[in-house]
Simulated assay, not measured.
Amino acid sequence: MNLIIRGAASPDDAYMPIWAPLLAFNEKTVGNAQGEPFALTITAPDSDEVQGGLWGLSLWGSFYIGLVVTPEGARGLGLGTQLMARAEAEARARDCRNMWLDTYAFQARAFYERLGFAVFGQIDGPAPMFPRWFLRKDL
């Protein structure tokens, strides 16, 4: 087989053609591999403008939290805790065995640990971005 590797003109347009054969392999091997997304948004009461929220994905009995954002002026008011509690309730409703996420040194490790998450992996690198921690919580 004669193949070459080249830079994609549009990385966004290249995603699905790259992902499709991997998804097909995964589904052939283990069944459904697409996951089920979950999202919560934070808005003002009289607006649909998204100011923050949480995005996650359940797959194979695990619930991944990809994004957690609270508006800067509203941090410390419990919104993040509420987002995470609702995500955990959803994970349990989906019969997930655990939740996991990652966070950088300049982000929210202590917040997640207060919610019962524990570090299971770490990537080191230059400050102030790193280390990057991977945390999980068994349900």
Rank of each mutant, 00 (worst) to 15 (best):
R136K: 13
F117S: 02
R86K: 11
A110G: 08
D13S: 06
P21R: 02
N98F: 08
Y64D: 04
D46G: 02
S47P: 03
A20T: 08
A93S: 15
M99R: 05
I42F: 00
I42H: 00
N98P: 05
L67W: 05
G7E: 15
R94V: 15
Q122T: 15
L139D: 10
F38T: 12
L57Y: 05
L67H: 13
G31N: 05
G76L: 07
F25H: 07
A87K: 02
A89G: 06
E72G: 10
L135F: 01
G31V: 00
D46R: 00
F134P: 08
K28I: 03
G35R: 01
L22I: 15
W100H: 13
G76S: 07
A108N: 12
G61C: 10
Y104Q: 09
A93L: 09
A74D: 11
N2Y: 10
D102A: 11
W100L: 13
R75E: 13
L135E: 04
A108G: 12
P45Y: 13
C96F: 10
F134H: 13
D95E: 09
T103E: 02
V69T: 15
G125C: 12
R114H: 12
T29Y: 05
A14L: 00
P128A: 01
G52D: 07
L54Y: 10
A108K: 04
L23Q: 10
M1V: 06
L115N: 04
P17C: 01
A74G: 09
I4A: 04
M1C: 06
Y15Q: 01
M16C: 07
F63G: 13
Q51M: 09
E90T: 13
R109L: 15
Y104C: 04
D13L: 02
L79R: 03
A14Q: 02
F130Q: 03
G125I: 06
P126C: 07
N98A: 04
F130A: 08
P21A: 13
A20D: 06
I42Y: 00
S10I: 00
D13T: 01
T29L: 15
I18Y: 08
A127P: 14
D124H: 12
L83V: 05
V50R: 12
G80S: 04
D12P: 00
M129E: 06
E36I: 15
G125K: 02
L101C: 09
F106T: 04
F111W: 02
I65M: 09
R94S: 09
R86A: 11
W133K: 04
Q51D: 12
A9Q: 15
A39Y: 14
R6T: 00
Q34H: 12
W19G: 01
R86D: 08
F134Q: 09
P21K: 02
G35W: 01
L79D: 01
G121A: 14
L67K: 14
M1R: 08
F134T: 04
P45Q: 14
F25G: 02
R92Q: 13
G116W: 01
V68G: 09
A20S: 08
D138Q: 13
G125R: 05
M84L: 15
L77N: 13
